[in-house]
Amino acid sequence: MKKSYTILGIIAVIIIAIYVMIPKERFAENVFPLGDGTKAFAYDDNADGGTSVVRFASSDSLVSFQCAMGVDEKKPTWCGLVFDFDPKGEKNYHNWKNVDTLYLDMDVSGTDEVNVKVWSYDPDVTDLSNPSSFKMLLKEVPVKAGNNKVAIPFEQLYIPDFWYDNLGVKRSRNNPHHENIARVEISAGWKQPRGKNFVVNVRGISVSGVSNKAYGIFLFMILGLMVVAIGRSHPVKEYDEK
C-alpha cells in the first residue's frame, strides 16, 4: 500500500510540473483606442423629459465626456459614456470568457465615484430593441480628481437587484454571458449631485486574462489521480460462495 501511495505522489509531482510548463494562452483586447466596428458616444435623459447637459468629443487618443445632471427633482436624470461593440445591431459581440481584469485609464474631475457597466447579450432575456434588457454587470468605482488608473477584477462585476426587478427577470437567470459582450459604459455615481458638472476623459480601456484550458486539463488529471487513490484505499473483497 505504501508503495502505491509513493507512486501516486510521484505522479502528482509530475502532473504539477507539466501544468507549470504548459504555455498559457493569454487574452488581451483594447476597448479604447477604438477597435474595428466599435463606436463611442454619449447619452442623456433629454428624450425622456430630463434636462441633463452633456458634452462629448472623441479623437484617436482621448474621449472627453462632461455631464451636469438636471436640477429638477421631478424629472428623471441620467447620462453616460458608451463604447459600443455592435452599433449596427448585427450581434458582433466580443467573447470575454477568458477575461479576468478590466483596466481603465481616465482623468476625472467633479465626482468621487463612477459606475462602470459591462453589458452582455443573454439569449433568454435580451430584446434587441430594448438596450436595458442586455445583462448589466456593474461595479461602483471610487475615483479621485486627476488621473486614475484602475484595475477591476472581472469577478467583482455583479448583476444588480434593480436590473432583475426592472425587467421582471428571475434571479436564477444569473449567467453573466461573458461570451457575448455588447458594450462598456461609464456613468455618474449614485450620489452625484444634480447640477454639478463632472468630467471623465478616457485615455484607455482594455481587458486581459489567461485561458483556463491548461487549468481544466490539470484538474482532470488530479481528479483521475484521486479516483485511483480512493480505489487503492478501498480494495474490493471477494467472498467464496458456499
Rank of each mutant, 00 (worst) to 15 (best):
L137M: 14
L102W: 10
K170R: 08
T77K: 11
L128Y: 02
A214W: 02
V99G: 00
D84L: 03
S211C: 01
L225R: 07
A47S: 13
K39C: 02
F83C: 07
D105V: 12
P142D: 08
L8Y: 09
L81P: 03
D36E: 15
E90S: 06
G216N: 13
V118Y: 01
D124F: 03
G168W: 10
Y93T: 14
F220G: 15
V199S: 09
F134Y: 15
V227C: 13
P123R: 05
I152Y: 01
C79V: 04
L104A: 04
N147W: 03
L223V: 07
V82P: 01
T38S: 05
V202A: 05
N166M: 09
S129H: 12
T6W: 14
S133E: 01
R232A: 14
A151L: 05
F154S: 13
D86L: 08
W163M: 04
G50V: 06
L81Q: 04
K75R: 15
Q156W: 12
A151Q: 12
N175C: 01
G146V: 11
Y239V: 14
V227F: 13
N166Y: 08
P123C: 01
P160A: 05
S208A: 15
N212C: 00
V200N: 02
R171Y: 05
V108E: 03
F65I: 08
H94N: 08
P123T: 04
W163E: 03
E179M: 02
P76N: 09
M221R: 03
S129C: 01
E73R: 09
G89F: 02
S233G: 02
M21K: 10
V71Y: 00
